[in-house]
Design a protein around this nucleic acid. Structure first.
Lengths: 195, 195
DNA sequence: CGTCTATTTGAATGTACTCAAAAGCGGTGG
DNA sequence: CCACCGCTTTTGAGTACATTCAAATAGACG
């Protein structure tokens, strides 16, 4: 089992992963590779898998009325990414997921997830906690969007995800923060001055 | 078992609730009543329960730097409300939950949740789906906050939650939408004109 | 090197905010 | 029943922050 995944799961459930669970898990996962610009999922089509990134960067976004990309999720290695709504409901995905760098992922397909979920209650628990954590992060992100200035949001982002700043295009970070790329550029300029 | 709760659970898991599960569930829940202005949870203290509202209205909010209430969740009868982060982690709550009307709730205490979760995998599944749905709604709310004007956000809110508009104070709806009460007042005025 | 995309910069505009005050509404007690 | 109080909503005027439109510069990639 990939060390990043093991680490991710153990941090999630706050206990070491039993050897048998580890084995079962490994059997359910499929390794896959994507080129930069490839899509792991596409808006409008069902998203049948959850991806764990072992190498590279990816982004889940939707296109707004003007055709601009709006990032909902940004992820580097060590993170999960998917359109969970589509994954669980089977409906069309609201987001496209695109590789921003050459990407290596572990794929958990819906059918394997369902199988495992029925056989091992452990899976429902793991995914309940994963989604729970995602939900809490999202709440905090929304709270900041409503209560903080664009500049403070960017400062908090840099602090929380320093690696992302280096590797994710600025226009995607801008949309993730709910601002326009031009505005983010000006904010960065102003910050460079003050420092 | 309260019909609103039964309905809520069956809609969540997309199947009728087995009679035995219903019985078990009913034993885990405690009825409780609050006056308008009472707190179900307080920012800074752990939140030990999840509440299902059977009558009345409630709001989960945090206080920003200026001491203004920022609504994270609004709920009428038929909805669940809690600070899930605090409930699951045991840490201090980020939100206060306040009764906006005389309130009747069914209380699911942490200890009962844990007991049930270990005895019946059904519970992990139910709560995984509940949180999953909450997560998806939150994503959509964030997407709208970033991509839509204040007016469109309010229009969408009115369409999605017509009952809330009648019963929740405007300044809380405003903060839920990420705008100031004065601005919401002006938006409503402009809408009345155009109609 | 040339093309395509991302980022920066400038100037003008606009949406929502701030500060301030008035009006409306609901509850309480004289 | 009316007067008063506190809180919510409305309105007005001025402001600020981020946006738009447009163009120039910088970077990535074949």
């Amino acid at each position: 089992m990939h060390p990043l995944l093991k680490q991710n799961i153990e941090r999630t459930i706050a206990q070491t992963l039993p050897a048998d669970s580890e084995k079962i898990f490994a059997e359910l996962l499929l390794e896959q590779v994507f080129q930069k610009g490839d899509f792991l999922a596409e808006e409008g089509k069902p998203c049948h898998a959850i991806y764990f990134i072992t190498q590279g960067a990816a982004c889940a976004y939707f296109l707004d009325a003007k055709g601009e990309k709006n990032a909902m999720q940004l992820a580097l290695e060590g993170h999960w990414i998917s359109d969970l709504s589509s994954f669980f409901s089977g409906q069309a995905a609201m987001y496209s997921i695109e590789a921003l760098e050459p990407l290596k992922v572990l794929v958990l397909k819906k059918e394997n997830f369902t199988k495992a979920s029925q056989a091992f209650p452990f899976f429902d628990r793991l995914f309940r906690i994963l989604i729970q954590n995602a939900y809490v992060s999202l709440q905090q992100r929304l709270a900041k969007t409503n209560a903080e200035s664009a500049e403070n949001r960017y400062l908090a982002f840099v602090k929380q995800y320093p690696d992302f700043v280096q590797r994710i295009p600025q226009y995607l970070i801008a949309s993730y923060l709910g601002i326009k790329p031009q505005s983010l550029s000006r904010i960065r300029k102003a910050m460079a001055h003050t420092k």
